[in-house]
Simulated assay, not measured.
Amino acid sequence: MKDYQNTTTYQVASLVTETERAVFYRRTYAHLAGAVLLFVLIETLFFQIPPILNFALSLTDGYSWLIMLGGFLFITNYAERIALKSKSNNKHYLALLIYVIAEAFIFIPLIFIALTYTENGSLDILNQAAIMTLSLFTGLSAIVLITRKDFSFLKSILAVGFAIALGLIVAGVLFGFNLGLLFSAAMVILASGSILYQTSNLVHRYKSHQYVAASLGLFASLMLLFWYILNLHTTD
């Protein structure tokens, strides 16, 4: 029996009918919401397993953090390569799962700091950061979805920005200086640009059956924004 998905010609979202486009958007954002929920569940599980928690916290100092960051970048590249190059939704699901697990692990130290930032370990800081992240993400996504403007020109700008940011992070670890609030604020702007770019890809680049792959790109940008907004809350 032939695979229907492999014998069907799909078009990018901007070229399909309004009904097909609405279905594609709904599926993409449903998978994004599912990825966020899975992230929360896995993160909660990690905090209930002392060996994983202690191991992640032990990787936050010096060269260990660079090793952890390098591993995360490798997993990110692997997941995104699967999402972009593979035509199989099953592989897209695998890439999304791998990426969610990797994000949950790398977030352990920052969330641990947020939970211990207040004396009673309340969730106020996490809740505030989450609300700010979702509000900004929704606003930026709406701009693209309503205007259908193509933000593909941001690709080279983002590439240079992320390269500079990575260089500063590595330098900060090697030479022991704190990048500070200004860096986190700049990364919030960079993450916002990434959201515009990824949402633009949703409209103009991804085909109507690639909703899982599209949700991976959006999830990556959303979590980057959440990381630095949360970082701003814990270092002010």
Rank of each mutant, 00 (worst) to 15 (best):
H92L: 07
H92R: 08
L94T: 15
L94V: 15
L94I: 15
L94D: 14
A95N: 08
L96Q: 12
L96D: 09
L96P: 06
L96E: 07
Y99N: 11
Y99E: 10
Y99I: 02
V100I: 14
V100L: 08
I101V: 15
I101Y: 07
I101R: 07
A102D: 07
A102G: 07
A102N: 11
E103M: 03
A104D: 10
F105A: 14
F105T: 08
I106Q: 08
F107Y: 07
I108Q: 05
I108Y: 11
P109I: 01
P109M: 06
L110E: 04
I111C: 04
I111F: 05
F112P: 03
I113Y: 09
I113T: 11
A114C: 05
A114G: 04
A114M: 01
A114L: 03
L115T: 10
L115Q: 11
L115R: 14
T116V: 12
T116M: 13
T116W: 10
Y117I: 12
Y117P: 09
Y117F: 14
E119R: 13
E119I: 15
E119Q: 15
N120L: 15
N120A: 13
N120I: 13
G121H: 10
G121Q: 13
S122D: 15
L123C: 11
L123F: 13
D124C: 03
D124R: 11
D124A: 12
D124W: 06
I125F: 05
L126K: 02
L126S: 06
L126Q: 02
N127W: 11
N127Y: 07
N127M: 04
Q128I: 06
A129V: 05
A129H: 04
A129F: 03
A129K: 01
A130S: 03
A130T: 02
I131L: 08
I131A: 04
M132R: 01
T133F: 01
T133D: 00
T133I: 00
L134H: 01
L134A: 04
L134C: 00
S135M: 03
L136V: 01
F137N: 03
F137E: 00
F137K: 01
